[in-house]
Design a protein around this nucleic acid. Sequence first.
DNA 1: TCGGAAGGCCC
DNA 2: GTACGGGCCTTCCGAT
Length: 565
Amino acid sequence: MTIAHYGPSPNPLEDWHTLLESPPERIAIDTETVSINDITLLGVGLCSDGDNGFYISHEDPEFGDVVDIILQNPYTSKVYHNAPFDLRVLRAYEADITNIDDTLLMARLLPEPVATLEDLAFWVGRQTNSMRTLMDAFRVSKASELPFEVLAEKCCRDSIVTRALYDYYASNIDMDYYHWLRPMISIFNRISRQGLKLDQDRLQELNKYYLQKVSLYRQLCTAQGVNPASPQQVGYYLASRGNFLPLSKKGSQLVTDDEHLIKLKDPMSHVILNFRHHSKMESTYIRPFLGLARAYTTLRMDGRTGRANSTKAGQDQPDRNLQNIPKQAERGDAPSIRGAFIPDNGVFTKLDQSQGELRVLAELSQDQAMIDIFLANEDIHGYVQQRTGLTRTLAKNLNFGLMYGGDVQTIADFLHWTNLSLVEELLARHRTMFPRAWEWLEDQEKLGLSQGYVTTRRGRKMLLPVEQGEKHMRNCARNYPIQGTAFECMVDLMTEPTIIEHLDITRLQVHDELIMDGVVVVEDMKLNPTETSKEGHPVYDVRERMAWLSGFYLPLQVQYVERWG
DNA sequence: TCGGAAGGCCC
DNA sequence: GTACGGGCCTTCCGAT
C-alpha cells in the first residue's frame, strides 16, 4: 500500500482519479522527508477541497503521474506551507516554481506571532500533529521510521490544514499586498537553484593559505595549554597572565571578544585574535565550498521585517548562507574570498541601491533636509561630517545609530568619548539638522509601543518583540519600518520587467545589492565620473525611471566586475 | 546527542 | 547599573 486517503469522502478512489484527470485550480501540497537534515523525499500529501487529503509515496508507480500532472503543472496554483523548504525537496523532480502560494508567507503578513501548523490548524477547525509528537509516540528518530499509515495520515492532515489556511488567510490578510509580493516566491527559488560558479583553483589557494595560518596560531596556543577556540579557556588563560577582562553576561566566564582582546597589550591576545580570524574564514567560508562546482543557497523571506535570508538546507545539501561571505578578507597577502565566486558569462553586473535605508528614512519621515541632500545626490555622511567636525566614519555611525535607536551611552562608546554631555550636544546638533526625521522616529516608538506593531511604506504590519524589554521594542519600532520598506524597494526592483527578464542570470540578492551574471545594461544608465569602485571599475548611476520605481528617489549604482568582490 | 552561549561574518 | 536593527553559522561545553 503506497497511497492513502484521509477525510470524509465516501468515494476516495474516484476523487483520486478525478484529481489526476482534471487537476484543480488550486491544491495544497505537503512533502515528507526522511528527516530535517536528510531532505530525501518520502512522499507528498495533496488536498484540493480542504477536507480530503491523499498521500502518495515517491515509490508508488503512480507517483510519476502526480509529478507530471500536479507538481509540474504551471496552471494549478500549488499551496505549500513554507514553500522554500518543499520546493527545495522537490527540486530533483523539477516541480513548477512559477505558480506557488505559501500559507506561511501569508501568515507573516499578520502582526501576530508565527504559530506552528499544529496550532494554526485550530483556526480553521482542523487538527494535525507535529512530527515531534509522532516520533516521540512511536519512539523513532526519523520520519522514515514511522509506520506508513501514521506518516500518511499526518501528511494528509497537513495538506488539508494548508488548503484550509489558504482560504482563511485570503479573507484575513491584505491580498493586494500578498499578490504584489507573491512573485518573489518564484524569483527567490529560481535564484536559489541556479547558484554561483566557484573558482576551485582560488579556493584551493585560499584553503592552503588559511589552513597554514590556523595551524601556526593553534600551535602557539596549545604550547601554552590553551585551546584558542574555547572562549572559556582563553578568558582564564589571559586573566592568569595578568590581563583584565570583564565578566560575561551570565557571569560564568570572561568576555574575550574582538573588541576587548584588541585592547590588551599581551601578544598572546593577538595570537588568539589571529587564530579566530583565520579559523573563521577557513571553517565557515572556505571548507564548505571545497570541491563544489557551484555555490548554492536557499533564500527565504521569514525575517521579522520580510527581508530575504539565506540559509543552508539539510546536512548533505550544498546550500549555504551566501549573504555573509566576507567582504574584506584581505589581511596581509590573503587572497579575497569573494573572489572565488565567479561569473558563468565573463562578468557580473552588480546593482546597488545606494544609501537605501537612509533614503527610505528621508521618504518615510519627509524630512526636507534629508530629501534635498538625496535628491541632489549629495553625500549625507559628508554633510554631517562637515557640521560636526567628526571623521567620516563616525558621522556615518551617527547616522546609523539614529536608525537603530542607539542611546547616548552607545554613541559615546563608538565615538570613544567619555564626556556624555558632549555627546548630548552632538546629538542635539544632529537633531537640528534633521528635525522631521527625529520626530518621525520618536513617533514610531510611541506608535509601536501602543499598538504592538509598526508598518512599512506599503502597509505591511510588522510585529514588535516584547520579550526583550521596552528599550529593545522601541529600537525595533524605529528600525523595522526602514528595513521593511527597503526590502519592498528591492522587491519593486526585482519584479520590474526589464530586471525580471534577466532572471535566468540573476545570481544573488544581498539586501541592497543584486548580482547578475553577464552584462546587463540598465535603462537610463549614466557614467558617474566622480566614482570608481575599489577595484578600479567605473561606477554608473541610474538617475531616471529606474530610480523612481518605488515612488521616491532611490538611484541604482551599476558596476561590472570580473569576480565577486 | 542536543541546545545554549559565545563569538563573528554580512547588510 | 543595562542593551544599536535584521540575519546565519561554527565551536565549545554542559545537560540529558
